[in-house]
């Protein structure tokens, strides 16, 4: 067994005729922070959705924390409980209060006693500074607050890995910072993170490695400094010149 917490080997995926992932290889060690960027439609979201099998890959191998992702439902549920995910559209449960959003999975999936789950949830909400909103419903919160709640909800499952799928893309500019701050704090606390984002400032500050994807392939994978200072491929250079 290697110390790699995520291993993807020759992963291929098709949506019908269209190939979204082409021979993707990726190793992530524990506590590593990886930022994935690339133009839209390049397969970044699909890549991280494959890691907790929200999307099925058709060829290749994905091993998460020592367990290979297969049809086996038990394994999938076990891995999903260990891998937290934050979505672009927050996807909070609108029928539950903020607190209940956070305690739902710990109570029902991890069989945690209600009281303990609530204490844990309050602690996580404190971390992202929305503890005063705990009794409110998602619809009453701003986008930034909702996204921070979504982060807290994922953390309540005490995941080993956190996946972020463009967490700031649906937010007003002034709310982006509060969400990024929460993510920076999380990174400092030593979480393993894979973040799909266009926030290059965040990448520079936090990431150990940056991956650039295009047309379903990993075009470039470099430590952060090299990635920005001297990208190898022309495609990356072009992309960076356009967004920086």
């Amino acid at each position: 067994m290697s110390d790699k917490i995520i291993q993807m080997e020759e992963v291929n995926k098709w949506f019908g005729e269209f190939q979204v992932l082409k021979n993707v290889n990726l190793q992530v060690s524990s506590k590593q922070k990886i930022v994935v960027c690339g133009p839209s439609g390049s397969g970044k979201s699909t890549l991280i959705r494959c890691i907790n099998r929200l999307e099925e890959h058709q060829k290749g191998k994905i091993i998460v924390d020592g367990t290979e992702l297969t049809e086996n439902t038990k394994n999938i549920e076990k891995i999903r409980a260990e891998v937290g995910m934050v979505f672009q559209q927050f996807n909070l449960f609108p029928h539950l209060s903020i607190l209940d959003n956070c305690t739902l999975a710990p109570i029902w999936v991890k069989k945690m006693p209600k009281k303990e789950a609530e204490e844990l949830a309050m602690k996580q909400l404190e971390q992202v500074q929305i503890v005063d909103q705990a009794k409110k419903f998602p619809g009453q919160l701003s986008g930034g607050q909702q996204q921070r709640c979504a982060i807290a909800r994922a953390l309540c499952m005490k995941p080993k890995i956190m996946l972020f799928d463009e967490p700031t893309s649906a937010l007003d500019p002034e709310m982006i910072k509060e969400v990024l701050d929460a993510m920076v704090n999380l990174a400092k606390a030593g979480m393993t993170m894979i973040v799909v984002t266009h926030e290059m400032g965040f990448a520079k500050e936090v990431a150990d490695e940056v991956i650039f994807m295009d047309e379903g392939m990993i075009v470039e994978k470099q430590p952060t400094k090299q990635f920005f200072a001297n990208p190898k491929s022309d495609r990356t250079k072009l992309f960076l010149s356009q967004i920086l």
């Binding site: 929200l54 439902t73 076990k78 999903r80 409980a81 979505f87 999936v109």
Partner: peptide, 18 residues
Amino acid sequence: LPRGQYDAGKSLGMGYWK
């Protein structure tokens, strides 16, 4: 219901019935 609700539930480790 938007697909995101299914995604969010699944990503928290819930099985079909939960």
